[in-house]
Each structure stands twice: as structure tokens, then as C-alpha cells.
């Protein structure tokens, strides 16, 4: 599945200072959907190069990290249960840096 992932608010520093990543993520058993929970695991393994604790806490994002799926707050779509589809755009923004 092809996705566009964007990191902002300082999170880009955890993945080689690259903000936008066009990625292909393998789905399980040939299904054509992916959950946010699966994606977070994939991001942690494949994109986060340092200080993963700045990005995740437990199985979800660290409190203070905002997530938008296709420019919509993931709190509206079920957070970890949000289902992703081909060409979706997922944005992660940290709110934890200075003001």
C-alpha cells in the first residue's frame, strides 16, 4: 500500500530530518487495508532512527503528538483502529516543542 507520511513539529528530526516520506507498506495476507496500529509499528521499525520514545509510548503515539489522516484529526476516526487506504496521507505533529 502506498502512503504519504509527514512528520512535523520537530518529529522530522527523528527520521533523518526528512519531513515527507512516500512509502510502500506491505499489508497482511494480501488485504487491501491497514490499521493505524499496524502503521505505527511499521514507522517505528522502518522510519524512526533515534529516540523512539519521543514518538511512541506503549503501543500508541506519545501524548502530545497529533495525528491527522487525510487532514482529519485521528480522534474522529478511531485512533489506532483507523483504517488506511491506498494513497492516504498521514501527518504526525509534535506539540512538545517551545512556543
Amino acid at each position: 500500500m502506498q502512503l504519504t507520511l509527514e512528520f512535523g513539529g520537530g518529529l522530522e528530526l527523528l527520521c533523518d530530518s526528512v519531513k515527507i516520506h512516500n512509502v510502500t507498506v506491505d499489508t497482511q495476507d494480501g488485504e487491501d487495508t491497514l490499521s493505524m496500529k499496524d502503521l505505527l509499528g511499521w514507522v517505528r521499525t522502518n522510519l524512526i532512527k533515534e529516540r523512539p520514545e519521543m514518538f511512541m509510548k506503549g503501543e500508541t503515539v506519545r501524548p502530545g503528538v497529533l495525528v491527522l489522516v487525510n487532514d482529519c484529526d485521528w480522534e474522529l476516526s478511531g485512533q489506532l483502529d483507523t483504517t488506511l487506504e491506498e494513497k492516504d496521507v498521514v501527518v504526525f505533529i509534535s506539540t512538545l516543542h517551545g512556543g
Binding site: T60, D71, C72, D73, E75, L76, S77, G78, Q79, L80, D81
Partner: peptide, 27 residues
């Protein structure tokens, strides 16, 4: 995370203020 468990969250169709457009965030 807590709310995601149990009741399956359903995307609300319209903005709770204007009742016309698709919601973009939860205040």
C-alpha cells in the same frame, strides 16, 4: 485510546456547529 475500545467509534458525518461540512478535529 480509551474511547477506541469497546464501542466501535464511528465517524460523525457532519460538523456539530454548522451541520453541513465534514468534521476535521475534535475540540
Amino acid at each position: 485510546m480509551e474511547e477506541a475500545q469497546g464501542v466501535k467509534p464511528k465517524k460523525k458525518a457532519f460538523c456539530s456547529i454548522c451541520n453541513q461540512r465534514k468534521p476535521a478535529l475534535k475540540r
